[in-house]
Design a protein around this nucleic acid. Structure first.
Length: 302
RNA sequence: GGUGCUGUAGCUCAGUAGGUAGAGCAACGGACUGAAAAUCCGUGUGUCAUUGGUUCGAUCCCGAUCAGCACCA
């Protein structure tokens, strides 16, 4: 098959300005936008995730924005399937589709695929968490050494999440995680052009700080209060929500909570940049730079 | 004006019985396969306020100056 269909990936650190650029590019291409933002999926999270506004959503059709509830179970593998299915549909109508968002692993799942594992039985993750909490991370390390000595040698042994996940797979399948984790890039029947939008660090951090202040003015605290019943959901382990839960618990002053949101958002931005840096298929664009942006359109139609 | 206290990393502060210094946070760098806005790992970045003295050697001791705070006038 001729790979005439193109996914235009526009990513970059949080607050860099992906939304506006994506809408601009999508309009010029006359196409639609798929979100790869693992927090904008949830309809209850709006202010704190800097979702596109109603006006922006009306300009270009967006997919995967607010299509889930925070109490829904979701993961990167499901996103891969959902996104591929949707791309297939959209390519009936369009030659190019814009995929935008800052969740690097989700973008990689679309570009390269992700190994398939069966869902673990309910409660297993929780059991492993309890084991770690009660007996320490050493208990997880010991279990992993027994079930998957190869992965034990590679994995970050201090990272409980990694250990828990690997054990989940080992215990569910009865086979070592490392044996099933092939990490082979999947063939795709579309072409990708990939861009990281970036700004000078100082400018980016300034935008982050201002955006957080803006979120507070828009009523982030009220949004967070409404979500108190769901605070233990994974979707609420999110910058902007966790800190305000701490404030509502009396652990922090409001001022300190807001400062923490800014700090944690800056660190998140840095982790995103680290993720994109190691993948040399991305082209980097320093905003504001209209010339490079129009270059994107030239890249798409050779 | 007087007395006292303080001045060390971006911030809050330790410390050196005199041999140019270290914690937390921030910052910076990195890892990453169903939690990924998560989770984890690594790195000290410094005119020790300024200036003169004592000393082989001063961030430390002594004097002066400057700044901040407190109290007394």
């Amino acid at each position: 098959m001729i790979r005439s269909k193109t996914v235009v990936i526009l990513t970059g650190p949080t607050a860099v300005g992906k939304t506006a650029v994506s809408i601009d590019i999508a309009r010029q291409l006359g196409t639609e936008i798929i979100s790869a933002d693992s927090r904008q999926f949830y309809h209850e999270l709006s202010i704190g995730t800097a979702k596109p506004t109603a006006g922006e959503l009306a300009e270009v059709k967006h997919h995967f924005v607010g299509h889930l509830s925070v109490s829904d179970y979701y993961n990167v593998s499901r996103f891969e399937q959902d996104a591929l299915k949707l791309l297939h549909e959209l390519f009936q109508k369009y030659d190019a589709v814009v995929l935008t968002g800052g969740s690097g692993m989700y973008l990689d799942a679309v570009c390269y695929g992700i190994d398939d594992f069966p869902d673990p039985p309910p409660g297993l993750r929780n059991q492993l968490q309890i084991l770690c909490k009660e007996q320490g991370i050493g208990a997880l390390q010991e279990l992993l050494q027994k079930h998957d000595p190869d992965y034990y040698r590679q994995v970050d042994l201090q990272n409980p999440v990694r250990l828990q996940r690997a054990l989940e797979v080992c215990l569910t399948t009865g086979k070592p995680f490392s044996e099933q984790r092939l990490n082979n890039p999947q063939a795709r029947d579309f072409k990708t052009v990939k861009y990281v939008l970036n700004r000078k660090r100082e400018e980016l951090f300034d935008r982050i700080n201002q955006r957080v202040d803006g979120m507070m003015r828009q009523g982030l605290l009220e949004e967070v209060k409404r979500l108190l019943p769901y605070r233990s959901e994974n979707a609420l382990k999110t910058v902007g929500y966790a800190e305000l839960f701490d404030y509502l618990d009396g652990k922090l002053s409001l001022e300190q909570a807001v400062e923490d949101i800014k700090t944690h958002t800056r660190r998140y931005a840095k982790r995103q940049l680290t993720w994109f840096k190691r993948d040399d298929s991305y082209r980097w664009i320093d905003l504001p730079d209209d010339e490079s942006l129009s270059g994107i359109l030239r890249d798409i139609q050779p």
